[in-house]
Amino acid sequence: MPEGYLPIFLFMVVAILFPIVAIVAARLIRPGNPFATKLEAYECGIKAASDSRGRYTVRFYIIAILFVIFDVETVFLYPWAVRYKQLGWFGVTEVAVFLAILIVGYIWAFKKGALEWV
């Protein structure tokens, strides 16, 4: 059983309670007087013609995919970073090989224009 998580759990309870208490307390004492104009979308000019949840650029999706690849890579590197003394040069070589494979993919993505925004 890992130790030291009880205080973390207590802290979590307090950290979750804090915003809830703040919102509820403000709700109890604040005025509430909404009317039609107030409840419109916060934009200027004419009324919004459509729902905002339409299409948006596919770039965000590509970034999300790149994030998955590179973040998983980061996670793979963590154990090595903690134990690199025991693993020695073997570990460094292994990581270099791992990164080499990854960098080939990175260069491919670069060439394909996945990192270009416009």
């Binding site: 307390a25 709700r27 604040r30 005025p31 509430g32 107030k38 409840l39 419109e40 979308a41 729902d51």
Partner: peptide
């Protein structure tokens, strides 16, 4: 001020 500010949730 922030406690006493009206805090509405847009209907949409």
């Amino acid at each position: 001020k922030i406690f006493f500010k009206e805090d509405w949730i847009p209907p949409f």
